Simulated assay, not measured.
Amino acid sequence: MTTLGAVLLPQLPPERMRDVAQAADEAGLPELWLWEDCFLTSGVAAASAALAWTRQVRVGVGLLPAPLRNVALTAMEVATLHRLFPGRVHIGVGHGVQDWMAQVGARAESPMTLLREYVTALRALLAGERVTVHGRYVRLDRVALDWPPAAPAPVHVGAVGPRTLHLAGEVADGAILTGGTTPAQVSAARDRVLRGREAAGRADPPRITVYLHAATGPDAAARMAAEQARWGYPGGDDDRTVTGDAAEIAAQVRRWARAGADSVVLQPTPDDPDPEGFVRFVAQDVRALLD
């Protein structure tokens, strides 16, 4: 069965996070996802706080931009989260927005090479291995974590293009697809990831997570129209966004699930007036129609 989640957008001031995270936890939301977007909030700092404020919700970070972060530091932070909050952490890494990476002097000449080296090293470190690598971007000399995760720590890759989707299948534990991915594109993406699995000789199933733009409430249509314009989507495109009551949104979630999404994470509009109410709506109203 597809897992349901919601996004706590980084446009929300950090001091608002506690109320939203606790509302999600108390309502029984399975997954709450955070982002590390430049130059808003830190994904790891926000995740550690959200996990400490809650008791059961699983917290995902999607994505951590690989060019911005030394892989050993990321491994240390992710391992710490897994040791402190076992079974409640999902981590995704990606290329990062290239314009933002250029702003901070971290843009890679070959993002694909960097991501392959990065994910391979990160998974090895989290598995407790001692890693030596002399890559184009990742260089480690006998690095091992003193406190690796006590259980497997999956690493997901944010992917849009076919090469990155194939790479996710080869070297990662799953793929995270951006908001605006249509059901047809989810199906095609899953196929690309599975081809990567086959090429790498792996039999373990990948986890496909997709963000889905969603809005509810009396002004939902107007807010979603503004969101569609911001992203350049055709107006009223129900293959990229969803609006309406719980029944309408649940019906659309099923479409994305049938297309191959293992986890559908509903992404509110940045101007949603009640983010606490949104996570409660997803956890209680929409989820009740899916169980």
Rank of each mutant, 00 (worst) to 15 (best):
M1C: 04
M1V: 09
A6R: 01
A6N: 04
L9Y: 02
P13E: 06
P13M: 07
P14A: 09
E15C: 08
R16H: 12
A24I: 11
A24L: 00
D25E: 12
A27C: 08
L34N: 07
G43P: 04
G43D: 02
A47D: 02
A50I: 11
L51N: 03
A52T: 06
Q56C: 00
R58M: 00
G60Y: 00
L63Y: 01
A66Q: 02
P67G: 05
V78N: 03
A79K: 03
T80P: 06
F85W: 07
F85N: 01
R88L: 03
I91H: 05
G94S: 14
G96V: 11
G96T: 09
D99W: 14
D99E: 15
D99M: 13
W100L: 04
S110Q: 15
P111K: 01
M112T: 09
T113A: 15
T113W: 03
L115C: 05
L115S: 01
T120V: 10
L122W: 10
A124I: 03
A124V: 03
L125K: 06
V133I: 12
V133T: 14
Y137E: 10
V138L: 07
R139G: 01
L145V: 10
L145R: 08
W147G: 05
P148E: 11
P149H: 11
P149T: 13
P152A: 15
V155T: 13
A159R: 10
V160I: 12
P162E: 15
E170N: 08
A172Y: 03
D173I: 11
G174A: 08
G179Y: 08
G179M: 04
G180Q: 03
T181C: 08
P183F: 02
Q185W: 00
V186R: 04
R190L: 10
R190D: 01
L194V: 14
R195V: 00
R197M: 14
R202F: 00
A203E: 12
D204G: 01
R207W: 07
V210G: 00
V210Q: 02
Y211M: 07
D219G: 11
A222G: 11
A222R: 15
R223K: 13
R223F: 12
M224G: 03
A226S: 13
R230I: 07
W231D: 12
G235K: 01
G236H: 06
G236K: 11
D237V: 04
D237N: 13
T241D: 08
D245M: 09
V253Q: 00
W256C: 01
A257N: 07
R258V: 06
A259M: 12
G260W: 03
G260Q: 10
G260N: 14
V264A: 08
Q267T: 14
Q267R: 09
Q267C: 12
D272H: 15
D274P: 10
F281D: 05
F281Q: 02
A283P: 00
Q284I: 15
V286H: 09
A288G: 10
L290P: 03
D291F: 05
